[in-house]
């Protein structure tokens, strides 16, 4: 847990002290930075390759299902929303609400997994796989890598749900915050991935 204290003097000379705290633990934030860096390389590499193969990428993107990406974006944003509500609930020691929000968050993550698997099978049925062309090699590599992060995020969410049910966050919620932050990172990555692959 990292803390910094800032002080300011306002017009009537009273001193305000603001305690700023980094949610979760520092190790998780370094892990998040490492993950973001790896995906940044993927995103930039994808954009550069698209610029070198514009026609191929345009034709290949047209073969993706137009609605699947949108459904997954809405599912991950809403899942992240429920996890944010869960964090707010646990900070007020509302265990029942926390568990309900976390379960809803995981159900929406499950929607993402099912739609993504359906999308892969839709492409396989059309005779498209990772070796079809450069676009689909990058598409399968990047989306499958993100898919694995969603699974890891769901394991973390399941773990903090079980701990919340056992009232394990009565004294310290930094472990909960760390898990929630990881899940929001998974959402953040998809926010960039979605327009790159489906819209642009």
């Amino acid at each position: 847990m990292t803390q910094s204290i800032s002080a300011s003097i306002d017009a009537d000379s009273t001193i305000k002290i603001v305690d700023k705290r980094l949610p979760g633990d520092l190790a998780m934030w370094f892990f998040i930075l490492a993950e973001l860096s790896v995906f940044a390389i993927f995103f930039i590499g994808f954009a550069v390759t698209e610029q070198l193969n514009t026609e191929l990428f345009t034709a290949s993107k047209a073969k993706l299902h137009p609605v699947a990406g949108l459904i997954n974006t809405l599912a991950l944003i809403t899942s992240s929303f429920f996890v944010a509500l869960a964090l707010h609930a646990i900070s007020q020691q509302k265990v029942r609400s926390t568990v309900i929000y976390l379960v809803l968050g995981q159900l929406l993550a499950l929607v993402y997994l099912v739609v993504k698997l359906w999308e892969y099978s839709f492409l396989f049925d059309a005779g498209i796989d990772i070796e079809t062309n450069t676009f689909f090699t990058l598409y399968f590599l990047i989306t499958a890598f993100h898919f694995l992060h969603v699974i890891l995020g769901m394991v973390i969410l399941a773990y903090i749900t079980l701990r919340a049910r056992k009232n394990a966050y009565q004294q310290d919620i930094s472990g909960f915050e760390a898990g929630a932050s990881y899940w929001h990172m998974v959402d953040l990555l998809w926010i960039i991935l979605f327009p790159l692959v489906y819209i642009i």
């Binding site: 992240s80 964090l87 959402d187 960039i192 327009p195």
Partner: peptide, 21 residues
């Protein structure tokens, strides 16, 4: 729009608006 959405996730969902600058 990606940047605006990212700002929402970072400031509100991740609660970094209230974290060290």
């Amino acid at each position: 729009i990606v940047s605006l959405k990212g700002q929402q996730i970072i400031d509100i969902f991740m609660e970094l608006k209230e974290a060290p600058r």
